[in-house]
């Protein structure tokens, strides 16, 4: 098998796949796509791979896939021998897909604010920021109650799943969109836990966590 990722370094959605592949120890090649300033994701050659003109695209031999959430599910189902990252259990599958949808909402708000402030995109900054705060508040509560029940991750299992990978990048990059995480302590503790998953890797703008406190 040869996996090729069509990738832009500063894209949180591309990073989701680099992160899962790093955790799974999967080798892959990168084809850099000049998303900014070159807008190469709208070029003819790229639109033939993904007519929606969005990154990332992943090729596994001849199979061409797009949408970061869909690709996370594919990689986990195909290459995660432990079965932990995208479990087969129907209720858990539904739970994970629910959080993949939340991840897309985080992209539509937190990432939109970042693109508007940093990359000159014509998005409504204030509306995007408000939307992100609303989602962060909900996630913070979900995680806060989870911690009381001994649940460290977004979904029910006692280990992380692709739901955590999908939601992580644009939570971490929120400050570039002018969205502080100061008021969300449980959310911040969760980002530290994600950063301590064995095999974790960084992207530009996301730094490693400090060492965990040992009791």
């Amino acid at each position: 098998m040869t996996i090729t990722l069509y990738d832009f370094e500063l894209s949180g959605n591309c990073y989701k796949l680099r992160l899962l592949m790093s955790i799974l120890g999967l080798p892959y090649d990168i084809v850099p796509v000049d998303f900014f300033p070159g807008r190469e994701h709208k070029a003819d050659w790229f639109l033939r791979l993904n007519p929606f003109g969005q990154l990332p695209v992943l090729k596994d031999d001849d199979l061409v896939l797009s949408d970061s959430g869909a690709i996370l599910a594919y990689l986990a189902k195909k290459y995660d021998a432990s079965g932990q990252w995208f479990p087969d259990d129907p209720a858990i599958t539904a739970e994970i897909l629910r959080w993949h949808a939340v991840a897309d909402d985080i992209t539509a708000t937190s990432s939109a604010a970042r693109l508007a402030l940093g990359y000159d995109y014509d998005f409504d900054i204030e509306k995007s920021q408000k939307g992100a705060h609303r989602i962060f508040r909900l996630i913070d509560e979900h995680l806060w109650f989870g911690e009381r029940e001994g649940r460290d991750w977004l979904c029910a299992p006692s280990h992380p799943t692709t739901a955590d990978i999908a939601c992580f990048p644009y939570v971490m990059l929120s400050e570039e969109g002018g969205i502080s995480r100061q008021d969300y302590p449980a959310l911040r503790r969760w980002t530290d836990r994600v950063r301590r998953i064995p095999g974790f890797t960084v992207m530009s703008g996301i730094f490693p966590a400090g060492p965990a406190k040992v009791d």
Binding site: D34, E176, M203, S204, G205
Partner: peptide, 23 residues
Amino acid sequence: STITDLRRFQQTIFGQDKPILEN
């Protein structure tokens, strides 16, 4: 290197500086 490669290298560096600067 291609222009895309060279841009990517520089953007990787700048993307690391950005949060430090903004803080």
